[in-house]
Design a binder for these strands. Structure first.
Length: 367
DNA sequence: TTGCGGCAGGTAGCAGCAGG
DNA sequence: CCTGCTGCTACCTGCCGCAA
């Protein structure tokens, strides 16, 4: 093993016959001192001869460090980016952040609570300027706690009780809108097809609740059958094909169940699930919306394609992403130690809007 | 005034050590 | 074994002062 000594300013000074200070000032091109052309040449020749590597000056390094301390980086947490709902939000945040000269690090939690917690800890060590949760955090109490030390904004459900600044939409009302639309079209029996329906996925349960309550209001005869498959949060399984295939699989189950005879509407808990639902119905030989009306939630981009044309709920992902960053930006700008800022929670609400497309129509008459 | 040297002090990197 | 603290050393910068 070679033990080659590092070439330093001292070596260059010795080689050129000037002092270390002189070499330092010349190689770092100090603006407030001047040197003779002869000395500069001697020093630069010595740099070449010795092989000294001119580093970034320490003052420049310090400047860089200082700017890092005041990092213009924010972290965004979401379950995944394969679902267009989250990728649209993340991209919208990134676009707005870019306008304010901020950069975005995105973290996919795959709805794994322990992974989410680890990632949050890593992010806190990175000294980011702020954090946006594009979904309800799995441990709201923990996130409320970190909210004391770093600005946090959550994009979540209106009915959540989280004590942080939030951009919210009422998923309950979203469910009501879908139910009202189907009831108006004469549907009385629907199937709700969903991934895990339990905490922290309150968004999904609130959608279901809105549908069930609205159906019940019209008549006790109306039914909403629930088809649920629990997702195990792992990297391997959490992808867009998973949600699509769960929609497909659960719809297939529904179509082969005895209650398929009376069900006329199939509701996916989100658009991606609804795509799977529609595919299963089509593969089984049914026509949409002649045999079954299909709808989802989120109004993802593919839902507006003519070949898909899914009735869904507009969730204003782009607007929410942009608003979330602006909210965070204001919080970053404020002095966090000021009492003016303490104990004040801002909530911005977006009203969900029904988007009617070709996947829903009047309920067929079942024998 | 210009050109340069000397020196104090700051920083990074590394090794050693203690405690959990 | 890992982590955090401390001290040492090398390297470099910034400021002051001196000689021409």
């Amino acid at each position: 093993m070679t033990n080659k000594k590092k070439i330093t300013l001292q070596d260059v000074a010795k080689q050129s016959g000037v002092s270390i200070s002189t070499v330092s000032m010349i190689v770092n091109q100090k603006s407030d001192v001047t040197f003779s052309a002869e000395t500069i040449k001697k020093v630069m020749d010595a740099v070449k001869t010795t092989g000294y590597i001119i580093k970034q000056s320490s003052s420049a390094q310090h400047q860089k460090k200082d700017s890092e301390k005041l990092s213009k980086i924010i972290a965004v947490f979401c379950p995944n980016v394969t679902n267009p709902y989250y990728s649209t939000i993340v991209q919208s945040i990134e676009h707005t952040a870019h306008l304010c000269d901020y950069r975005v690090f995105n973290f996919n939690t795959f709805r794994d609570p322990s992974l989410e917690k680890e990632m949050i800890k890593d992010v806190l060590e990175m000294n980011v300027s702020g954090i946006i949760f594009a979904m309800m955090p799995s441990a709201p109490e923990f996130v409320e706690q970190i909210g004391d030390s770093v600005p946090v904004v959550v994009i979540g459900d209106k009915d959540s009780t989280i004590q942080l600044d939030t951009i919210e939409t009422s998923n309950y009302i979203a469910g009501v809108l879908i139910a009202e639309h189907l009831l108006e079209l004469g549907h009385r029996h629907a199937a709700f097809i969903s991934t895990t329906l339990e905490r922290p996925n309150t968004m999904r349960t609130r959608r279901l609740q809105g549908i069930q309550d609205t159906f019940k209001k019209v008549s006790p005869e109306c039914t909403v059958s629930v088809y649920e498959k629990k997702i195990i949060p792992t990297y391997e399984r959490q992808n867009i094909f998973l949600e699509h295939s769960i929609g497909f699989e659960l719809c297939d189950q529904c179509l082969h169940s005895p209650e398929a005879e009376r069900i006329t509407a199939l509701i996916g808990v989100n658009d991606v699930i609804a795509y799977g639902v529609a595919d299963a119905a089509l593969k089984a030989g049914y026509e949409i919306p002649k045999d079954f009306s299909v709808c989802g939630f989120d109004n993802n981009f593919p839902s507006r394609l003519i070949s898909v044309s899914l009735t869904t709920i507009e969730h204003y992902m782009q607007e929410k992403g942009s608003e979330a960053f602006q909210m965070l930006y204001k919080k970053i700008g404020k002095d966090r130690s000021s009492s003016d800022n303490a104990e004040r929670i801002t909530r911005i609400e977006y009203q969900p809007k029904l988007i009617v497309r070709d996947s829903t129509n009047r309920a067929p008459i079942r024998k």
